[in-house]
């Protein structure tokens, strides 16, 4: 298995209270991967640590077999939508163009090529007509797509997204999902923090089940089982009983053609 992200013996805490405890897993390349777990299970923290925004107490993470600093340009981050102030005086194009900013072009002007790439990214998320609109005048779903367009404009190889489906209507969710599948078909790796168990099984090829500790990581057929979900979600059986049908149902509606080729981890 070619590896995209490796997490080794990772412990991360806030105010010396660990929120990730000795987490260890490896993720494959070219898949759509979900990081799933209940509220407060450390999903966002996991993403932030992989992105170098939080320092672990112990353990380390690597991307494409290298420390983040060596591969920054190949890594793109889509933060949670609420993490920025959408009243900021900028239009959609301004934000998408930020995907073209690099350490080594920060003092240079934005080029025609940058604009072309940003326009293309806006086209992909179907927001081209909003290019000149101020970002505060967008709906939540449109704001989310602006963030995805910015990330696309970065032309990275791996994309890490924190809850990209939150506050997005069904049609947009489908459109984003289609985009993610296109990216996967181009060989890109997409890692998504997701809290909706109902759709997790359908969306992802590979799942990391988290609850402070790692519950399981692997191809979804191995991870999305009643036992493991119960372990991750503890006693919250009301949620799980609703899922009973989903799990026992072997006919996944959106089964991928390469479904069978997924090798178990390790």
């Amino acid at each position: 298995m070619e590896k995209s992200i490796e997490v080794h013996n990772l412990t991360v805490s806030y105010h010396s209270k660990p929120v990730l405890w000795d987490v260890d897993f490896e993720l494959p390349k070219g898949k759509i991967i979900g990081i799933v777990g209940p509220n407060g299970s450390g999903k966002t923290t996991m993403l932030k640590t992989v992105m170098g925004l939080m320092k672990p107490d112990s353990g380390y993470t690597e991307i494409f077999g290298q420390p983040l600093d060596k591969v920054r340009e190949r890594v793109s981050y889509v933060p949670q939508r609420e993490s920025v102030d959408w009243d900021f005086p900028a239009d959609v194009m301004d934000v998408v163009l930020m995907g073209r900013y690099r350490k080594n072009n920060l003092f240079k002007r934005i080029t025609k090529e940058d604009r072309r790439i940003a326009t293309e990214a806006l086209e992909k998320v179907n927001l081209l007509e909003f290019a000149d609109r101020q970002i505060s005048q967008l709906s939540g779903g449109q704001q989310q797509r602006v963030f995805i367009a910015r990330s696309l404009a970065q032309q990275a190889d791996i994309y890490l997204m924190d809850e990209p489906f939150v506050g997005v209507d069904a049609a947009t969710e489908d459109a984003i999902l289609k985009l993610l599948r296109d990216m996967k078909n181009e060989g890109k790796t997409v890692v998504i923090v997701h809290h909706d168990l109902q759709t997790a099984n359908e969306y992802f090829d590979w799942i990391v089940l988290l609850n402070t500790r790692l519950v399981a990581a692997g191809p979804k057929e191995q991870v999305f089982t009643k036992e493991l979900l119960q372990e991750a979600y503890g006693g919250r059986l009301t949620v799980l009983s609703k899922l009973g049908d989903l799990i026992s149902d072997t006919e996944f509606p959106l089964r991928e053609p390469d479904f069978k080729e997924d090798q178990p981890q390790g």
């Binding site: 932030k48 992105m51 981050y77 102030d85 900028a90 900013y101 003092f107 934005i110 910015r150």
Partner: peptide, 16 residues
């Protein structure tokens, strides 16, 4: 560019 980016979205700038 640096001021714009770091004012709007610190985390994103840091990742880059």
């Amino acid at each position: 560019k640096g001021l714009l980016m770091s004012s709007f979205n610190e985390d994103y700038a840091a990742v880059l």
